[in-house]
Write a protein that binds this DNA or RNA. Structure first.
Lengths: 246, 246
DNA sequence: CGAAGACTTGACGGCGGTCAACATTGGTGG
DNA sequence: CCACCAATGTTGACCGCCGTCAAGTCTTCG
């Protein structure tokens, strides 16, 4: 069975229901509130949303990887977060039709598309949805605070954390097998996310590989020594996990 | 008239009503929803909330400066944001009774204290309050994204931005006269906020002063060349202002 | 007057940025 | 099948921003 069979299905059958904000919930009454307007495949490099454009839709990334980024003064771009299957493209889209950042697909993938107006209406009438939205907002706040704390961390701490964050989030989604997962990011993406040059990212990754902590090849990364990475990151397993709780 | 006369007043008479989340709004019906349970003065250094403690209250900082910070591995602390009069101590307190950071008063000040349960109830029954909360959340998200973008900025860019942010926020509150404002932060606070050492903060501040962009003395800072600071920060006046829109 | 805290200054060193050359890979068209 | 090119990653040399350490000044406060 292909993931994309979801295209024709109802939200009730969503294979990642437990991860997403948009799931209508249990019960016949709620089921009628499955508001998905469209299922849309996107190709690698597709700009899902462009900074400043008006937009009347809300999206959940159903499949593939995406980045949320800002264009900075003189060409540089800052990656604000990496989006994985199940992540909302942007919670603020529920309230505003314009955003301060862009979102781009990094791999072929798929979106579930909702009407902003319908989501706003559901927010008013469905208390459990409102509560879920609050939980998602709170989590985004915790994650953002941790990124701000990166300001005082060294390159290797930032990179170890970055890898661990993706590792844990992918593991929640069942996308890790024996420490290994698909890894479509280039070194310049890691640099753009962490404020480092791709060259220095390469140096640190090489060091981590030489020390036996990770392995990587084309489009693939393996976490070989989880505890060792945690130590370099200056983090604990519990701290990492609680960041992502809802 | 002393600011603290608010202690005895009703939220209707709040002098910073336009800035705050907690204001009950217009009309007799809404006025009855002024939920403030207490007005509490705090001294310099008072820990308003300690990371991880359970808490059944929600707070608005009514007067004074405060910092929101995390204790990091080995003694260092990361300042996540500087709170000014009118700012909520923490929006996530509306949903969770435990937070991942602490909040401390930097100067003598005052809090308006609310019951979390009562605020949650108001959130369910008052759509305009829910909308206002969404707006505050969205703004915090924009501000956090800008801090994350600091990862790729130099020390002087970060510091210029930091000063401009405080300048604009204080000006909104009528706390700037002729470019000058009270500035209770020490250099080590700026360092803890931006991931720099206090020594290097001192170097950059001295440079900014020597170039005629700012002046500073004990507990006071003057923005002498707003445009020059904007240029160093790599920002525009509009970008700074729109960050803070509601 | 003594002590603690904040700021300044100078010397030194390392982390990470910059630049250039080169290897490798994958995609495209001949 | 091969030539070509673009994108990615690797390596090495060099350097500058910023961290570290230490000494000294000034203010504030007990």
């Amino acid at each position: 069975m292909n993931l994309h069979s979801h295209m024709n299905g109802h939200c009730d059958d969503c294979p990642i229901a437990s991860l997403v904000l948009c799931h209508p919930g249990e019960g016949a009454e709620l089921r009628s509130k499955a508001l998905r307007e469209a299922y849309r495949r996107v190709h690698e490099g597709f700009v899902i949303y462009r900074q400043g454009d008006p937009c009347e839709h809300f999206f959940t990334l159903f499949d593939g990887w995406a980045i949320r980024y800002k264009n900075m003064s003189y060409g540089h771009r800052q990656i604000l977060s990496v989006l994985l299957p199940g992540d909302p493209i942007s919670l603020p889209l529920l309230r505003s039709n314009k955003l301060d950042f862009s979102v781009m697909a990094l791999t072929p993938g798929a979106l579930c598309v909702f009407s902003r107006a319908a989501m706003a209406a559901r927010l008013r009438t469905d208390p459990s949805f409102a509560g879920k939205l609050e939980a998602f907002c709170a989590r985004e706040g915790r994650v953002a605070d941790e990124r701000i704390a990166d300001l005082a961390r060294s390159a290797s701490e930032r990179i170890a954390r970055f890898i661990l964050d993706l590792f844990v989030r992918l593991r929640m989604r069942g996308m890790v097998a024996d420490g290994a997962f698909v890894f479509p990011l280039r070194q310049h993406h890691i640099g753009d996310a962490l404020g480092l040059t791709p060259i220095h990212v390469g140096r640190v990754l090489r060091q981590l590989r030489d020390d036996g902590l990770i392995e990587f090849g084309r489009n693939r990364l393996v976490v070989r020594d989880y505890q060792g990475l945690l130590k370099i990151a200056g983090a604990t397993e519990e701290a990492l996990a609680s960041l992502l709780d809802l």
